[in-house]
Amino acid sequence: MAESTNADASGANGQAAGENANPQQFTIQKIYLKDSSVETPGAPEVFTQSWKPEAKVELNTRRSTIGEGLYEVVLTVTVTATVEERTAYLCEVHQAGLFTVAGFEDNATDQLLGAYCPGVLFAYAREAVSDLTGKAGFPPMTLSPVNFDALYARQRQQEAAGAEATGGEETDTAG
C-alpha cells in the first residue's frame, strides 16, 4: 500500500513538474545610467535672484528586446526649472536596466516592462536628478513618487479608446 501511495505521489509530482516546464522568471540583470546632463542657461544671473522655481517634470519610457527574454528598459526623466519665465536649469537623466522576463503571458510581460520596470528605475533616476541639480549649484530636486501602474493603465485606456474609435468607424462603413 505504501508503494502505491509513493507511485501516485511521484506520478503527481512528475505531472506538476511537466506543467511547470516553462516557469515564470523575472530578474534584474543590470541597472545603469545610460545618459545624463544638466544645463544652466540662466547662470550666473539665476543665482542672484530669489529661488522660487516652477518645475516641470516629464517622464518617458522605451523598451527594446535584446535577446530571448532579455529586455532593455530606459526611463527618461526631464526636469525644467524656471524662475520668472527664464530657464534656471534643464536636467535630463536616462536611467536604464536590463531585465529577464520569461514564462509570462504577453499582457503580464507588457505590464512588467511598462509599469514595474520603470518603477524600479525611477528610484535611481530620482537620485541622479537630485545629485545633478545639487552639483549644478541649486537646491537638490527631489522628485515626488510616481505611480507607474496608474500611468500604464491610463496609457492602455487611451490606446483602447483610440482602437475603439478606429474600429467603430470601420464598422460603420462596413455596415
Rank of each mutant, 00 (worst) to 15 (best):
N60H: 13
P140T: 14
V79M: 00
A21I: 09
A108N: 05
V77Y: 14
A43G: 05
L70F: 15
N13W: 15
A43I: 11
P44C: 08
A96R: 05
W51Y: 05
L132S: 08
N6K: 06
G103A: 05
I31T: 03
F104L: 00
A21T: 12
S36E: 07
I28A: 02
S144E: 05
Y71V: 01
E58F: 10
A17F: 15
E170R: 15
A55C: 00
G97S: 02
V46N: 06
A16H: 11
E54H: 14
E159A: 05
E169Y: 14
S64K: 10
D149K: 05
G42V: 11
Q155G: 07
G18E: 05
P23H: 07
E170Q: 12
V120F: 11
L75F: 07
A17I: 11
T166Y: 15
D35A: 09
A160R: 11
T40D: 00
V120Q: 04
T142I: 08
G175S: 13
F26L: 00
G14L: 13
F104S: 00
G162P: 02
F122V: 01
G11E: 12
G162C: 01
M1Q: 11
G67E: 10
D149S: 10
T171L: 00
N60D: 03
S4M: 04
E170P: 02
D172N: 09
A128V: 12
L113W: 15
E92H: 09
Y152H: 03
T171R: 04
M1A: 10
P41A: 07
G42K: 10
A16P: 04
N13H: 14
A88E: 02
S50H: 10
H94P: 00
Q15P: 02
D35R: 12
A125Q: 06
E54I: 03
A88M: 01
A81H: 05
A174H: 13
P44F: 14
Q158M: 07
L151T: 07
P145R: 10
V73T: 10
V77I: 07
V120Y: 13
T87S: 07
D106M: 04
T82R: 09
V77K: 04
G114E: 06
T87V: 15
T65C: 02
T61E: 00
A96Y: 03
M141P: 03
K52G: 01
T133Q: 04
A55I: 06
E169L: 04
T27I: 15
A16F: 12
T87G: 07
E54N: 09
A9D: 15
A17N: 12
A115S: 11
G134P: 04
V101A: 02
T173P: 01
T65N: 06
V120K: 08
G67Y: 14
R126N: 04
G14H: 15
T100D: 01
N147W: 12
N60R: 12
G97D: 01
V74L: 01
E19L: 13
P53C: 01
T166F: 14
M1P: 10
A174R: 10
V77R: 09
